[in-house]
């Protein structure tokens, strides 16, 4: 069994109004030196597949097909083995 942790964020240049709003909130709470806040999505996918390479292929395929919109989003992921 493997667990894939997928991080999805907006591409550079795509406006992120939530990030901007959160940054304003941090500024007004007195946190100095906050340059930028970017929001994104975090997904965890558990797979009952025993081959790490295959897990990677599956996750890539899922990201490209549905989980990520390549027009505005980027993604990275980590794959960890689940020890039973």
């Amino acid at each position: 069994m493997f667990n894939a942790k997928i991080y999805i964020s907006l591409k550079e240049g795509v406006s992120d109004p939530q990030g901007v709003t959160i940054k304003h909130a941090l500024d007004s709470l007195g946190y100095k030196g906050v340059k930028k806040v970017k929001t994104g999505k975090y997904l965890q996918v558990e797979l009952e597949i025993n081959d790490k390479e295959r897990v990677k292929e599956e996750i890539e395929d899922m990201c490209k097909k549905i989980l990520v919109n390549p027009v505005i989003e980027n993604y990275t992921y980590k794959i960890e083995e689940i020890k039973e």
Binding site: V14, S15, P17, Q18, T21
Partner: peptide, 16 residues
């Protein structure tokens, strides 16, 4: 847009 029948994508409204 998601189906790729039209170009581009939607973001959340600017004023959230």
């Amino acid at each position: 847009l998601e189906a790729g029948l039209l170009p581009g994508a939607m973001r959340k409204n600017k004023n959230l």
